[in-house]
Simulated scan of single mutants.
Amino acid sequence: FGYRDFPPGTMPGVDEPKPSWVVLNFDDVAAVAWDHDSFSSRDSLQEESSAPSLMLVNHDRPEHTRLRKIAAKAFQPSSIKSLAPAVDALAANCMDDFFVTDQPVDVMADYCAMLPSRVMAYLFGMPAEMDRDVNNWATGFMLSADISPQERQAYNVQAMTFFEQHVKKQIDLIEKGEEPPGPLINAFIRTEVDGDRLSYEEIVRFCMTATVAGAETTSFYLGNLIAVFADFPEIWQTFVDDPKQFDAIYKETLRFHGPPQRLFRVATRDITIGSADIKRGDWVACFFGAANYDPDTFPDPYTFQLNRKNANRQMSFGYGIHRCLGAPLAQLEAESTARILRYRYAQIERAGDAVWQDVSLLNHGLASNPVIFRGRT
């Protein structure tokens, strides 16, 4: 008891994190994440900070149930699957913009940072040239950018101001019978479940949540996937020989190099986890990344193994009622990236040391990932 760290959206150097218990093994992480009655997801530090509170991530039942029903309809699998042609086009264009065949490329500086941002801009009907803004908002809010509190706050204000104005414009256009661009923001506006719709304020905050979480996490995942292809040539060759193996590669990459590392919970009652006597009001840090390396659940965890029988148990997208709704979208971007890489390039080689970001423990991802994409002869 005594680990201190910052939840997303808070301000290092301004906000003061509270000491928390650390939960690491698979069974204990699962117990805390599943028991939403004993462990609240409300984040008082974020609520008291100047940053906007996230939707779903920081809600408890019954409000979480209401919000998730509506959001789940907006993120239904058929809707995500219908985005495949647009995501393919964005991925191909992004590679055209940033990749040079047979020359070193740091994919974290461009492709992995920009594809998720361009996808989010498309989903929200934003001008394409705002892709850098989306990236800045995400890295600032999710704490992976080493910037001052003033810069972080400025990005939060920019993002919220934009979405407050943008959502109003979209609502006005829809009420006039027009069909504005932005399939996800339009779904947030139009979706109704049991006669219930999201309020204007909720739509704005859902846009903010999806933007910062979707752009940030997927950026790191894409970098980690490309690192697997570069660092484990046999995995790349397996995929080249049999593209149906991608699902197994995707799942094991989530376990081996899953971006989301930890989230906080707050005990609502006195409870014992393992040998720890946790008191009501204590903070608990669930390290999903550590659970993914628990040898009792995943034997030989430091070995990248395809076709683990329990691959679906990895926790990189959370566990229980807070499992990430945007996971299928992240998978769609990863599938598109891998498929186009396989079509265009014969091999992916390491061109320099992979440097893992050390600004935040929130995400496991690369700050620098230099590789060479070898063209087909």
Rank of each mutant, 00 (worst) to 15 (best):
D60P: 04
A74G: 05
A30D: 04
R68H: 10
E16Q: 14
S49V: 00
F75Y: 13
M55C: 04
S40K: 01
L90W: 03
E47D: 12
T10L: 00
H59S: 11
G9I: 08
F75H: 05
S41V: 02
Q46G: 11
E16K: 15
F39I: 05
A33D: 10
I70P: 04
P19G: 08
A51I: 00
E47Q: 15
P8R: 01
F98N: 03
I80V: 15
L67C: 10
T65W: 12
E63Y: 15
K18H: 12
A72C: 06
F75G: 02
S41T: 01
M11D: 01
P12E: 06
A71I: 00
N25V: 02
A33Y: 03
S50L: 10
A72V: 00
L67G: 08
D88Q: 14
F99S: 06
D43N: 15
S82V: 00
A31L: 12
E63A: 12
A91K: 03
E47H: 11
R42E: 12
V14W: 02
A91Q: 03
T65C: 09
A92I: 10
L67Y: 14
A89I: 02
I70E: 06
M11F: 15
N93G: 15
P12K: 11
H36Y: 14
F75I: 02
P85G: 08
P19Q: 13
P12Q: 07
S38C: 10
G9P: 05
Q76K: 14
P19M: 10
D15G: 04
L67R: 12
V14C: 07
L56W: 02
A71H: 05
D97F: 13
L83K: 09
P7I: 09
L90D: 05
L24Y: 11
W21R: 02
Q103G: 00
A30M: 13
I70Y: 10
W34N: 15
L67K: 13
P19F: 07
P104Y: 08
K18V: 10
F26D: 08
F39V: 04
W21L: 00
I80Q: 02
I70G: 04
Q76A: 14
S79I: 04
D96E: 11
K73E: 15
E63T: 11
P62V: 07
V100Y: 07
A92V: 11
F98H: 12
Q103M: 08
A74F: 03
L56D: 01
M55D: 00
A72P: 00
F98W: 13
M11H: 09
A86C: 07
S49K: 03
D35L: 10
F39H: 06
A74L: 07
V100D: 09
A92Q: 13
D43K: 11
K73H: 10
K81L: 08
G13N: 06
D60R: 04
V23N: 01
V29I: 04
F75S: 03
H64T: 05
S40V: 08
R66P: 06
A33W: 05
D60G: 05
M11R: 09
A33T: 01
V23S: 00
V87E: 02
R68N: 08
F99A: 10
D102W: 07
A51P: 01
M55E: 05
